[in-house]
Design a protein around this nucleic acid. Structure first.
Lengths: 220, 220
DNA sequence: GATTCAATCATACGTTCGTATGAATACGCG
DNA sequence: CGCGTATTCATACGAACGTATGATTGAATC
């Protein structure tokens, strides 16, 4: 059996000067097609066509279709998690940093609108995602939940369940991006347009702030 | 070509006394498998096996695989939309009814946990859902957005964008149900358990209420 | 009991799927 | 240049797919 080139090519992935390698093109095509049509809806032939590569390229570089899927997931999630971590470790109160996380998500999904669907499609099926995905998601969850705990010591966030609070916060950018196509279908409001996205960002910031802030009338 | 039996059987669908018909079993199996594995991930053979029906049954009763998918979507969405409409037309302030909608979603998803994934999987792909689905979703959107407008005249809801507010409200039950399997994978918190669901419901009610209520300190 | 028609059945067809294989080509290094 | 490794290529294979077909069954109607 042919050994997957994944590891070797990943090590060589630091090369940013060469022409776009087949491997990179495959990941880009995979992100696009998996995100749009799902795993089962995207054939290897469609992916290699999109990437301008040979039919055998996926098997050669990633071992299998699922191998490519894992790589796509990892390369899509890692920069997002990095943004979240960065926003969470900036200055200001815990609430400030929560809101910065919301902003970071919106900004990231502006250039990667397929990411929420890509991540949720398999997971909603109850299947086990690749281990690296579990690790990344767990990290994000704990970052935000930790911020909630911190917010209760510095008084910037009201009391509540840390994990559920994290879900409520993350749900805003993720859900809005997820339903954008359907929303555009049922009405004249297209969240994929920049102006509408700005509105959505400001609305989400206000909504999350109101949902997290301690109530002055209860804490006089 | 064989004509689909959809219409005729739908008319006969008022019969609730007979043994579970093949048609009903197919929709149940379709809801389960489409919801869990997606449209492309569910083969007609898997569906007819699950339903205890013959391979040809889907083609006979629904014309095609996509015909069954439309029927599953419609039969899953209609009761949900009815619950929302009912909650929206009850008594109390607009905010009260918004919160009742959140509760209605949670209750509905408790018995139909696959519904969010079922609805969002295709739509996130940018495909046009069946017309009946578009109509139902539009109705729900306008019901909640109308409630938001009403809430500003009765003073129970703060100002904001009606559609975005509707999204923020709906996102809580939908997103929590959607990510439940992944959340259980990355941590010890399983939103599919009744106790956790109760927590999530109460958290969501508090979060949405805080996000919608006018701030007393701004409106003295 | 014969007729009729909706429903179910076993089976077949052509296509597309993921993957495997071996030849052909490109490339770095002595 | 020549050799060895890495990559790309055309092609093949068996399996699974959605759908079509025609025979068979079941129950109601006369």
């Amino acid at each position: 059996m042919i050994e997957s080139r994944t590891t070797a090519s990943a090590l060589a992935g630091a090369d940013t000067t060469s022409a776009p390698s087949t491997r990179v093109q495959l990941i880009a095509a995979g992100r696009k097609l998996f995100g749009q049509r799902g795993f089962d809806g995207s054939s290897i032939r469609a992916i290699t066509d999109e990437a301008g590569a040979n039919l055998g390229a996926v098997t050669y570089h990633f071992g299998s279709k699922r191998g490519l899927y894992s790589a796509v997931l990892e390369e899509g999630l890692r920069p997002m998690a990095a943004r979240v971590t960065e926003a969470a470790s900036a200055g200001g109160t815990a609430l400030d940093r929560m809101l910065r996380i919301v902003r970071a998500y919106f900004e990231h999904f502006e250039t990667h609108p397929d990411l929420p669907h890509l991540l949720l499609q398999e997971v909603a099926a109850g299947k086990q995602p690749p281990p690296v995905v579990i690790e990344i998601v767990r990290g994000v969850k704990e970052t935000i939940a930790g911020l909630h705990v911190e917010g209760q010591t510095d008084g910037s966030v009201r009391e509540g369940h840390p994990v559920l609070t994290a879900l409520s916060v993350v749900s805003q950018p993720v859900f809005m991006t997820l339903v954008a196509p359907m929303l555009a279908t049922v009405g004249p409001f297209d969240l994929r347009e920049p102006a509408a996205r700005r509105l959505a960002l400001e609305h989400s910031l206000a909504f999350v702030r109101a949902g997290l802030e301690p109530r002055e009338d209860l804490q006089p």
